[in-house]
């Protein structure tokens, strides 16, 4: 018989990031008639805090959710490690990483359907130029995801809510902030930003999770249908990189210059991100960090 899944998104309904998931839901509802239907309730923050969503999935209030790893560390602390990924989901499904991740989720009453957005790094945006990986004397607005990284590079960090970033940049209270390629124009930050630093660091990551009991209660046919649809969604991941490239071109057009660090500095930059990221990860759970590292990074 038909199963109806109550689904939510951690990103604002209708936003660029949520739209791929929303298309996925539309297609599912079309093809899944009589088998699987999705009741899409909307996205955070309108429907609640993004960091509370996965708790509700675990508790069975919602059946399915689309979230980034950093939002459900209160259920699965190791979810934060996904930002350190260097391989895409296709490879994870080959090398056994997918099963390992699935096991971690199952222990918390979750089913890991799949992952999108694995090729979209964070960047440092600045209003004064830098020419090396030494950021001492620079003030950066940070989120928890990358505070340790910038501190390690010598920057002083500043926590502030996202709506304040515009004023902070404009008034020069901070010299920069970390963000992904998308969203700069949504907050009008293009008006107060002069530079974007290459290379990027870490990676954005989006995951589709389900309540484990609900998953297990579904027929094989229904499960197969969802898996098939998820694989289709994952195959579109290369579109994200394309989209990022377009977004960066738009930034350049708007006057945001790209600073490309010289190779030796870029190496320090990337290696520091990697080293600090895994150091932090090992503090959370050393065993899992060491094990998962084998799957999600390249040696």
């Amino acid at each position: 018989e038909e199963v109806t899944i109550r689904a939510v998104s951690g990103w604002t309904a209708g936003s660029i990031i949520a739209s791929r998931y929303e298309d996925f839901i539309d297609k599912l509802n079309e093809r899944g008639k009589g088998l699987v239907q999705i009741d899409y309730l909307g996205g955070a923050p309108a429907i609640g805090s993004p960091v509370q969503i996965v708790k509700k999935v675990k508790g069975g209030v919602y059946g399915m959710a689309y979230v980034t790893g950093g939002w459900y560390t209160n259920v699965l602390p190791e979810a934060d490690f996904f930002k350190l990924s260097e391989v895409d989901i296709a490879e994870l499904r080959q090398n056994g990483g997918y099963e390992y991740i699935q096991k971690l989720h199952a222990e918390k009453g979750l089913h890991y359907l799949g992952r999108t957005y694995d090729t979209s790094p964070y960047y440092l945006y600045l209003n004064k130029p830098v020419d090396s990986a030494d950021l001492s004397g620079i003030d950066i607005r940070v989120s928890t995801a990358y505070q340790a990284f910038f501190t390690e590079l010598g920057a002083s960090t500043h926590s502030a809510p996202v709506p304040e970033v515009y004023t902070l940049m404009e008034r020069g209270v901070v010299d920069g902030f970390g963000w992904v390629a998308e969203g700069i124009f949504d907050y009008s930050w293009d008006q107060v930003t002069k530079y974007r630093v290459e290379p990027g660091f870490f990676t954005g990551n989006g995951h589709v999770l389900m309540n484990l009991k609900l998953w297990e209660s579904m027929s094989e046919e229904q499960q197969a249908m969802l898996n098939e649809m998820m694989l289709e969604l994952e195959q579109g991941n290369y579109l994200v990189a394309e989209n990022d490239a377009k977004e960066i071109a738009r930034q350049t057009e708007a006057g945001i210059e790209t600073i490309v660090l010289p190779p030796d500095q870029a190496k320090i930059w990337s290696e520091t991100a990697r080293r600090v990221g895994w150091e932090e990860a090992r503090k959370i759970n050393a065993t899992v960090a060491d094990e998962i590292r084998g799957f999600i990074t390249r040696p």
Binding site: T73, N74, V75, P77, D80, K108, T144, Q147, A148, I284
Partner: peptide, 13 residues
Amino acid sequence: AFESNSAIYKSLV
């Protein structure tokens, strides 16, 4: 939350 040992991971855990 107590049972499942859940924590908030920011600069303080």
